[in-house]
Design a protein around this nucleic acid. Structure first.
Lengths: 116, 116
DNA sequence: GTCTCCTTTCGACAAACGTCGTATGTTTGC
DNA sequence: GCAAACATACGACGTTTGTCGAAAGGAGAC
């Protein structure tokens, strides 16, 4: 038989995504950076994200995003490619990703000089 | 007079709300229920929300929501009135609250009818 | 074959979270 | 003045989270 490959990557079906899980997944600066990077540049290998955390930490964040249904991952060779489930998210929660990405793109500094 | 002698309720200015804080505040079923109740029915006293947690727990959730800038509270007599900062949120993160509330209203129903 | 690269899993840790019961303080009403 | 109603503050508890380093394992290159 075919060798049992790596542990199967579980992805929740598009129809069963839960809002609280998605919000929780996005309520973290590192994960928000990951999502925005995917949004801007499309599918990516894990090691190519502009975040400053240990590889094992990044794996943890990917699992949170994956189990919430925000991203999907597939394996090709020795790389694991990660992509945004933009269509699924938009089908389940129309406009949510767009609005959050637009808000995340805003500078943390207010127009009147307010900090953060 | 309007002001009270109780410890002053601190509310972050509208321009300095942080997206991750708002998302984190909304990434909880109880708090999401509170926000939706405010959205539907306007200002309310603390004890009148359709949630099933201890009063002290509810106070904790109100603080999370208040410090994230999602709600504001004012005191009148022996009641504390809580209101949604819909305008401030929409100014800082346009459309965010609308989209999340719309998503929260979707048929995501849990086992015991819990909303998501 | 061996070796290297990429990513994950496995503890481990401190910090934060959600929950509660009890005590405290304020306001209203008797 | 005294008691009840409303909401908070405090302390406590178990769980979850974000973080890391070390070890493991598959895929491709040599």
């Amino acid at each position: 038989m075919i060798s049992s490959r790596r542990p199967l990557l579980v992805h929740p079906p598009a129809g069963s995504l839960r809002l609280v899980d998605v919000l929780h997944a996005l309520a973290d600066p590192t994960r928000l950076t990951v999502v925005r990077t995917l949004r801007d540049g499309g599918e990516r290998a894990c090691g190519t994200f502009p975040v400053d955390v240990a590889p094992s930490t990044l794996t943890h964040h990917f699992r949170v995003l994956r189990e919430a249904g925000v991203v999907q991952q597939r394996e090709v060779g020795k790389h694991r490619w990660t992509a945004l489930r933009a269509d699924d998210l938009d089908a389940r929660f129309p406009g949510l990703l767009d609005v959050i990405m637009a808000s995340a793109g805003e500078p943390a500094v207010g127009p009147n000089g307010a900090q953060v």
